[in-house]
Simulated assay, not measured.
Amino acid sequence: MAKAEAVKKREPVKTRRPPVGASPGTLIADPSARRSELRLTLISPQKFKTIENASIDDLNTHCDKWPVIWLDCTGLANIPLIEEIGRIFSLHPLALEDVVNTGQRPKVDFFEDHAFVVVRMIDDVTSHRYEQIAVFFGRNFVVTFQEREGDPFNPVRKRIESSAPNRLRARGADYLAYALIDAIVDSYFPPIEAAGDMVDGIEDEMLHSTHKQQMRQLHELRRDANVLKGVLWPMRDALATLIRNDVPYVKAETKIFLNDTLDHSLRLIELVETQRDMLTGLIEMHLSLSQARTNDVISYLTIVSVIFMPLTFLVGVWGMNFDPESSPWNMPELKAYYGYPEALLFMALVAFGLIGFFKWKKWL
């Protein structure tokens, strides 16, 4: 497996909020918000119609003529447009405030004639960027707000556009909302499974050799797992709340499908928890292997030092400037005819003798 990419520096996430003391429901656009664009999908059991770059006039014209309408707003820069959408569908102003103030925790709020669901989607895996998607739905409408282009809704759109009869056109707005939420939850599987493959690859590499880059990759993956855990747990709670509450615009048969989405979210949480435990274990294993490698190096250096210590002693003794002619006690072996080869042979015997001793003790 190819080595993972180097850790990239993350940009801090900044959330635009109303000033302190502002009236509840005050909408203030983020200066970095994208330009707002509307896509209107009109749905009936027999047919459908999609209007790209729709306007409020298109919405007013078709709003009461189709059993189900889906309005998708991409970009949150146009505050008057968002307020007008809220007026047409009677959306609660506090919910609209949460739409504009991105970075909300996944949740579900119920109002008299509609529900408000906040979920988070992995927008860009490489840059670790998440995007908030807000979903409103009532008896005959679904309104979604996205921060920017790009979403996992293409399979849902293809099912709506299919010529074959399908549940998305035959059932109501609550089923369409379920399909959109289910697509968001299922979009977490590919990046989480890819992260699992990366963890397995790093583990295989570590069994052969360890290096500093692996530790950086492991810390990065564990940080991603912690972020995913912080997103998936409240998403699970939101889905459970959506299933438990008895509101007239969420049918009992739709709750059966929402239960399946809840199961998917629980499986995602289990995958993330397992990966997080594996990453914690791999980090500890990396530290242990690195420490063991350091100990091995120190052991070999110590053995080499011990071998050379007596040799250094002998060389130091024979290197002293004694005069054997002045006294028979002044190192007479300095004038031995084979003194040099005999000294080398003796030192070699000492070195090999120490190596044999270390092997006998199983230190080598």
Rank of each mutant, 00 (worst) to 15 (best):
L314Q: 09
D263K: 05
S327Y: 02
E112D: 13
L91H: 04
S299W: 12
L59P: 00
I269Q: 01
M331H: 06
S305G: 14
F48Q: 12
S127G: 11
T26I: 01
F358K: 07
V143M: 05
I88A: 02
P80D: 03
S327A: 07
L59Q: 00
V99F: 07
S327W: 02
S32N: 15
E203R: 11
Q46V: 04
V350S: 04
D151V: 01
D200H: 08
A343I: 12
P67R: 07
D197P: 09
P67T: 06
Y340A: 05
D204G: 13
I192E: 01
T280I: 12
R293L: 13
A33E: 07
N154E: 05
L271S: 06
K107E: 00
W70C: 01
A179S: 06
V304Y: 11
E284F: 05
L271Q: 06
T274N: 01
D260S: 12
I269D: 00
I269V: 01
G172F: 03
L71F: 02
M309F: 14
R276G: 01
T241M: 14
V99P: 11
W66N: 04
Q291R: 15
L207S: 15
L176S: 09
S288I: 03
S32D: 15
F89E: 08
T50A: 02
R167T: 04
I184L: 03
A351T: 10
L38Y: 05
R157Q: 00
S55D: 01
K49R: 10
R157D: 00
D204N: 15
V185S: 00
L266Y: 05
V108E: 11
D296A: 10
D30T: 10
Q291F: 13
E52T: 13
D296G: 12
F110N: 03
G138P: 11
T241Y: 10
A183Y: 03
F116G: 03
T50P: 09
T312V: 05
V68W: 06
R129E: 09
L289I: 12
L364E: 06
L345M: 15
E273M: 03
P45Y: 09
V231L: 08
